[in-house]
Computed example of a mutant assay.
Amino acid sequence: MTEVHQSEPLVEVLTALREGVMGVSETVISTVDGLLVAADVDAVHAESVAALTAATYSLARRMAEEAGGTGLRDVTTRSADRHIVVLAVNDRALLTILGDDGLDVTALQREIHPTLENLAKILDSDTPE
């Protein structure tokens, strides 16, 4: 059974991504500080993924800056049987996608932009002015 952390509109977007892209198994939204915002997970500890995501993103952003790059878009890690993709939703939130070895990377690339836009819109509407 899938463990779902609250924030229904966010979870709906995460679920649609999991159901729409073959190989996506779990998704986590966290703050850039590593706090859990929402998750659709089964086999991982969402809070741990959130914390590790923030550390991964921070290190990758620093590496990109050192190499002369700007505006880090994503961090991708691939092990023998898993894909881990970390993406900036906006300047305050990150999306982590965990996928199995059969992840349809082409479908993920096609779906990721509208997914990030939807997440940003929801997160922005929840932020007090």
Results as ranks from 00 to 15, higher is better:
31 T>S: 15
31 T>Q: 05
31 T>I: 07
32 V>P: 02
32 V>N: 01
32 V>E: 05
32 V>F: 01
33 D>E: 14
33 D>M: 12
33 D>P: 01
33 D>A: 08
33 D>R: 11
33 D>Y: 05
33 D>V: 10
34 G>H: 02
34 G>F: 01
34 G>A: 03
35 L>S: 03
35 L>Q: 11
35 L>H: 06
35 L>V: 03
36 L>R: 02
37 V>S: 00
37 V>M: 03
38 A>R: 04
38 A>V: 02
38 A>Q: 01
38 A>T: 05
39 A>N: 08
39 A>P: 01
39 A>W: 06
40 D>Q: 04
40 D>F: 08
40 D>G: 05
41 V>L: 01
42 D>I: 07
43 A>N: 13
43 A>E: 04
44 V>N: 11
44 V>I: 13
45 H>Y: 11
45 H>W: 06
45 H>F: 13
46 A>Y: 05
46 A>F: 00
46 A>N: 06
47 E>H: 05
47 E>K: 13
47 E>A: 08
47 E>F: 04
48 S>V: 13
49 V>H: 00
49 V>R: 09
50 A>H: 14
50 A>C: 14
51 A>M: 01
52 L>G: 07
52 L>S: 08
53 T>G: 07
53 T>N: 08
55 A>G: 06
56 T>Y: 07
56 T>W: 07
56 T>S: 14
56 T>L: 04
57 Y>F: 15
57 Y>E: 10
57 Y>V: 14
57 Y>L: 03
57 Y>W: 15
57 Y>T: 08
58 S>H: 09
59 L>D: 00
59 L>P: 00
59 L>I: 12
60 A>T: 13
60 A>G: 10
60 A>N: 11
60 A>S: 14
61 R>L: 14
61 R>T: 14
61 R>N: 15
61 R>P: 01
61 R>G: 10
62 R>T: 10
62 R>F: 06
62 R>Y: 04
62 R>C: 00
63 M>Y: 09
63 M>C: 13
64 A>W: 09
65 E>R: 13
65 E>F: 14
65 E>D: 11
65 E>T: 14
65 E>A: 14
65 E>M: 09
65 E>P: 00
66 E>D: 15
66 E>S: 11
67 A>M: 15
68 G>R: 05
68 G>N: 04
69 G>W: 01
69 G>T: 00
70 T>N: 01
